[in-house]
């Protein structure tokens, strides 16, 4: 642009900065945690809050807050699910909500001595898959009230509910509904 006049820069007097040197990002005291420089390894934080919807499974979680354990039954083939699902895996038809019995049996179990970071502080804890009479599938839950060496398949268990609901599946947990004794051969 031939007609453009030269930009008048600020005074070049000693001790004053040119315009280009006045453009600076504001500095903060937010540093970076560095673990290593060869190769350069640093801490990188990440977190997020979701607006998580239980959608078609919502009644199950609301049910837990009312002391009810809801499963599903296929309206066509009558397959019964202990963990709810809106449509039948066997025939594809819609299911209806059913109330499960609160008494069941341990189908299988484990005691976790380590875990994901989120649950590490809760170790050791027992996980059980619970079977209910007349229901085709199982339900995953925690079990309290028995030590590892007292856990066994077929143990009779009963559902308990949190008083202050978290609206997650831990609102229900199971406890032994028969006396616990050391398992045969348990170390």
């Amino acid at each position: 642009m031939a007609d453009k006049k030269p930009v008048r820069t600020s005074s070049t007097k000693l001790g004053t900065k040119p315009e280009w040197d006045k453009l600076r990002l504001p500095e903060t005291d937010q540093g970076t945690v560095v673990f290593n420089t060869d190769p350069l390894i640093l801490k990188n934080h990440y977190e997020i809050d979701y607006l998580h919807s239980y959608a078609e499974d919502s009644p199950f979680f609301v049910g837990l807050s009312q002391g009810k354990l809801l499963g599903s039954e296929c309206t066509k083939c009558h397959y019964r699910y202990a963990t709810p699902r809106a449509y039948c895996m066997e025939c594809g038809k819609k299911t209806r909500w059913i109330e499960l019995p609160l008494e069941g049996k341990v189908h299988t179990w484990t005691t976790c001595y380590f875990g994901s970071e989120a649950f590490l502080k809760e170790t050791p804890f027992n996980l059980v898959l619970v079977e209910f009479a007349g229901v085709n599938t199982l339900f995953l839950a925690r079990l309290i009230g028995a030590k590892q060496e007292e856990m066994r398949v077929s143990m009779k268990v009963r559902a308990q509910f949190r008083r202050n609901s978290k609206f997650d599946p831990t609102d229900v947990y199971f406890v032994p509904s028969e006396p616990v004794t050391p398992r045969e051969g348990a170390a």
């Binding site: 380590f114 059980v128 898959l129 925690r142 599946p169």
Partner: peptide, 15 residues
């Protein structure tokens, strides 16, 4: 249904 109960694959395989 699974992860919040104590999501841990070693636990699943143990069961």
């Amino acid at each position: 249904f699974d992860y919040p109960v104590g999501g841990f694959y070693s636990g699943y395989y143990a069961m």
